[in-house]
């Protein structure tokens, strides 16, 4: 088992999340060079069927009512006991809401190095995207075993999908006396505007500086007949509702035209809009990562360009 690569499968609402397949594809590659196999680790209750299209050498499945829904405490305990007993060479965890509650805990409970925000990895060398995507850092791992928390969208999903693999049932560890209890899942409330349905999105970020300035982009969007969306800081500051947020913790959008105004393009945001057909970026910082994804860009000040565009519509 010592050359195997673990992938912690992620699912929500009865559906496997794409990050699982993205990591499985990469794990197969790493396992091949290490002389081991990709092993998917799936936790749930009556959820074995979710592994049906995993391209893995093997699936370790742990079934327990306590694991039916994601629970940071129960999942950490269960995965740590699996990693300790199977001693895989590497463990890939999503740098996602669920994975963030697993990776760092494993690092301490299993005594393994952790490299976060991984955008690429090979044996013993992991590349992380830090500083909002403005810097890449390569880390060398001490010893030959490690954990990486992998950015969503870093690898294609195709290579991780297949005809399934042998599933080995593993008994759950003692999960009595948990201090965290799952209560319920809440679906998003319907918003006033469906940003996923709009052909043109005017999207605003931190560069707008304050709530009053939103008027400038709202007026532009109105004249253009576009919906107004935004990046996370705008929602965290309650300037626009959650239903307008594009990105990792918001919505994925694929409009014909996406106009990013004052958005630097952190990896979490790029994840939500990189598939737009035409991306236009307006940002005074010439080094902003958004320009690596945009088709057209300008470093002119948004407070000059946006009103000028509104005037021409």
């Amino acid at each position: 088992m010592a050359n195997n690569i673990f992938v912690i499968a992620e699912h929500l609402n009865g559906k496997v999340e794409d990050i699982t397949y993205e990591m499985l594809g990469k794990a197969k590659e790493l396992a091949a060079s290490a002389g081991g196999e990709a092993v998917a680790v799936l936790l749930g209750s009556g959820a074995k069927g979710l592994a049906g299209d995993f391209a893995a050498g093997k699936v370790l499945y742990v079934d327990s009512p306590q694991l039916a829904e994601f629970n940071p405490e129960a999942y950490c305990k269960t995965i740590a006991s699996l990693v300790n007993s199977h001693a895989p060479k590497a463990v890939l965890v999503g740098n996602t809401s669920q994975g963030m509650d697993i990776a760092a805990g494993l690092s301490i409970d299993c005594g393994l190095p952790l490299i976060a925000y991984a955008s690429d990895l090979s044996a013993g060398n992991v590349t992380s995207q830090l500083y909002g995507g403005k810097m890449n850092v390569e880390s060398a791992v001490e010893g030959d075993r490690f954990i990486a928390s992998v950015l969503a969208g870093a690898f294609p999903t195709d290579a991780g999908k297949g005809s399934g693999a042998a599933v080995e049932d593993v008994p759950a560890p003692d999960l009595s006396g948990l201090k965290i209890k799952f209560k319920q899942l809440h679906e998003p409330e319907g918003g006033d505007v469906d940003i996923t349905a709009s052909d043109v999105l005017v999207s605003v970020g931190r560069g707008i500086q304050n709530e009053e300035n939103l008027e400038i982009v709202q007026e532009f969007a109105d004249k253009l007949g576009a919906a107004l969306s935004c990046s996370r800081p705008i929602v965290d500051n309650k300037w626009l509702p959650k239903t307008r947020q594009v990105g990792k913790s918001g919505l994925k959008v694929k409009p014909k035209v996406y106009i990013a105004i004052g958005i630097s393009g952190a990896p979490e945001h790029i994840e939500g809009m990189k598939d737009a057909e035409c991306i236009i970026a307006i940002n005074t910082d010439a080094n902003a990562p958004i320009f690596d994804f945009a088709h057209y860009g300008t470093t002119e000040d948004l407070f000059d360009v946006v009103p000028a565009m509104t005037g021409k519509l």
Partner: peptide
């Protein structure tokens, strides 16, 4: 979670 879904824990 992503897509505006959230879980409630006690």
């Amino acid at each position: 979670y992503s897509g505006g879904i959230y879980a409630e824990f006690e």
